[in-house]
């Protein structure tokens, strides 16, 4: 059965999601930050985690964005193949939602129209949109505004098959060590393993939208996530990069089949303001 969804409705949801994501963290992130307050060993680190809690409270109560870098809007649009979209062009509808959300929510406009000419578009569009056609008759929208302090510290490694899982571990540790204080730790680390050059980057980005308390369903990947979280937290970087035992809140890893000759690995680092809002229409 074909189900009709209006693109106007999509605009309305994206607008609300932009505002929600920038003022409230999801319950899993909230929980992870509170847990870190209990376990952090450094006195200064604890003080910073307390400030982050205070910051979240102010953000929600007074509607001041959690972070001034309200990000470039990254949107995963998963569209059921039985959905018929009615109204204007989908991409325009999504960008209109971003435009309205960033204006009405007093969010920062951080997008420039060209990477070299660098003129601000003044409405935070265009968004970065990843479409996929899925089974069913629903539209699932995931909005993840991405700040660039941490985005700039993200990496792609084209490893050799012989590098194996040890190579993957080394790549993750290298990216986190290089990021250090720049990525606003405690961070969330999204990792993509496999696919092609661009597929692994997309896997890593999508991994960041998975709740931090939800491990991978693949047993060895789940183990790798836990091991890497421990290893990363032994680096000593700590909250704010000022030393401590909480460098990351979670390592989320997604995998995909790859070529006999390759082992692509992407590490997409996100700060503690790991924003994601999901809605299904």
């Amino acid at each position: 059965m074909i189900r009709t969804v209006s693109t106007e409705e999509i605009t309305k949801h994206i607008r609300e999601m932009c505002i929600e994501a920038n003022h409230y963290l999801s319950p899993d992130m909230d929980q992870a930050l509170k847990h870190a307050q209990d376990t952090e060993q450094s006195v200064l680190g604890k003080k910073i985690l307390n400030q982050l809690q205070e910051n979240l409270a102010i953000a929600g109560q007074e509607m001041i964005p959690i972070c001034q870098d309200t990000g470039m809007a990254v949107i995963f649009a998963e569209i059921g193949q039985e959905v018929h979209l009615e109204g204007g062009f989908l991409e325009d509808a999504i960008n209109e939602g971003v435009r309205q959300g960033y204006a009405d929510g007093f969010l920062r406009k951080s997008v420039v129209s060209d990477p070299i000419l660098r003129e601000n578009t003044k409405d935070n569009t265009p968004a970065v949109i990843h479409y996929s056609i899925v089974k069913g008759d629903k539209v699932k929208l995931t909005l993840a505004p991405k700040g660039f302090g941490s985005e700039n510290m993200s990496r792609v490694f084209m490893l050799k098959p012989a590098d194996g899982i040890e190579g993957v571990k080394e790549a993750i540790l290298t990216a986190v060590k290089d990021a250090g204080p720049n990525a606003c730790p405690p961070m969330v680390i999204g990792v993509g393993i496999g696919g092609t050059f661009e597929k692994c980057a997309l896997l890593a980005k999508y991994a960041l939208t998975r709740p931090v308390d939800e491990p991978s369903s693949i047993p060895y990947v789940k183990e790798l996530e836990q091991e890497m979280l421990q290893k990363v937290n032994r680096l000593g970087i700590g909250p704010g990069g000022l030393g401590g035992t909480t460098t990351a809140l979670a390592v989320n890893i997604n995998t995909y089949p790859t070529h006999i000759a390759g082992l692509p690995v992407a590490v997409n680092i996100c700060c503690h303001v790991n924003r994601h809002v999901v809605r299904t229409i």
């Binding site: 001034q68 601000n120 606003c184």
Partner: peptide, 26 residues
């Protein structure tokens, strides 16, 4: 503290433009 923009905002009592207003947030 990176990512504590709401908290730090509360310590700012006044803001005025000095120059380069065309740069928006910059």
């Amino acid at each position: 503290v990176g990512g504590a923009g709401a908290l730090l905002s509360k310590c700012i009592t006044h803001s005025e433009l000095v120059c380069y207003g065309d740069l928006g947030a910059e």
